[in-house]
């Protein structure tokens, strides 16, 4: 009886909430006409929303997978799967990342959940770095963007993989603990995290979904801040002036392209086309630096990482990736 009342109440609430939402939306149209702002604000808003709308489905799939990991994968599984040997674990995580088609927004909640479940930090990082960089869609779009030249696409994957392994190794030297933010540390004490065994499947699915909701609200705000910053940069910072700094010297042009990759926060599936639009202005190494660095670190996903890891770790991590990518490409330049 009580259950029946509850489900009726839920239905009614649902209808009320939808009704309220529709009401608000219908009055928003009238308010819309009354506001006038400088056109750059509208442009920035459009870019901001477009980044969000583009990223949202991928983030949603990411939080669903993260919810699934939380409920269905136990710490014992992780202990069994991850090799004891550090190098083996790093290599394995990079390979798994390479096989796992994800984009840089969707992968953050997944990595967070994996690390909370006991995956060592360095393995999580390896996965985080190769996941968005090495996957079929990225290979294909890079191949297409550079005039159907396989060389750029292959170099991107191979160098990216090497960089990921180096970074994960350095992380393993520097950090022993999981580096999750304080409130994340107790993830495993979450009662439905490990107590899922023996529950009916519907209950498990319900928990997967509720976890996904919580994750969405947790992660969402950082994604939104990141998108807002990236939109601001695109609206108010001129890439031409950035490019002017980089002309000529290999070191400075590599830095400029990496800076662009960071600030523009493009999805790894679309960034190749932007890189191609600079391809004749910069040395190939600088273009490749853009292609390798962008999927690993950018404004948007750095914000999301801040939602997962301690700030100190995020900044160390960003510095390590930046230095490694830069050094690797300066060395590689000898061969191009």
């Amino acid at each position: 009886m009580l259950g029946k009342i509850r489900s009726t109440v839920i239905d009614v609430t649902g209808v009320l909430i939808i009704g309220l939402a529709i009401y608000l939306i219908s009055i928003s149209g009238t308010i819309q006409g009354g506001i006038t702002l400088p056109s750059s604000i509208y442009n920035m808003n459009t870019i901001f929303l477009s980044i969000l709308i583009e990223a949202l489905p991928f983030v949603l799939v990411g939080v669903l997978i993260a919810g699934g990991i939380q409920i269905f994968i136990t710490e014992d599984h992780i202990k069994r799967w991850i090799p004891k040997n550090r190098f083996a674990a790093i290599l394995m995580s990079c390979v798994v990342g390479a096989c796992f088609p994800a984009c840089e927004c969707g992968i953050v909640p997944i990595v967070r959940r994996l690390i909370a479940k006991g995956v060592p930090i360095y393995a999580g990082i390896g996965f985080l770095l190769t996941g968005p960089l090495i996957n079929p869609i990225v290979i294909l779009s890079t191949y297409m963007a550079f005039g159907n030249d396989l060389k750029v696409a292959l170099s991107r994957m191979i160098i990216g993989f090497i960089v990921a392994v180096i970074v994960a190794f350095l992380i393993s030297l520097l950090f022993r603990t999981n580096q999750l933010k304080q409130e994340l540390k107790n993830a495993n004490h979450c009662e439905h995290g490990t107590a899922a065994v023996g529950q009916p499947v519907t209950m498990k699915i319900f928990h997967v979904l509720t976890h996904a909701v919580d994750e969405f609200f947790d992660m969402g705000k950082y994604l939104i801040i990141g998108a807002l910053l990236a939109a601001f940069v695109q609206t108010y910072v001129s890439s031409e002036s950035l490019v002017a700094i980089g002309n000529g010297q290999i070191a400075s042009s590599t830095i400029v392209m990496m800076g662009l990759a960071f600030l523009l926060s493009l999805c790894s599936e679309a960034d190749a086309f932007i890189a191609a639009s600079f391809s004749n202005l910069f040395a190939p190494t600088a273009i490749l630096a853009f292609l390798v660095y962008g999927p690993m670190i950018d404004l948007k996903n750095m914000m999301m990482m801040l939602s997962v890891f301690r700030a100190k770790f995020v900044f160390t991590f960003v510095s390590i990736v930046t230095i490694v990518v830069f050094v690797v490409f300066i060395l590689l330049n000898q061969f191009y």
Binding site: S39, Y42, S239
Partner: peptide
């Protein structure tokens, strides 16, 4: 909901 989406214009072209 409050701001209509705009079409990118010349000022964005300049920045890009």
């Amino acid at each position: 909901f409050l701001l209509p989406p705009s079409t990118l214009d010349a000022s964005i072209a300049a920045k890009k």
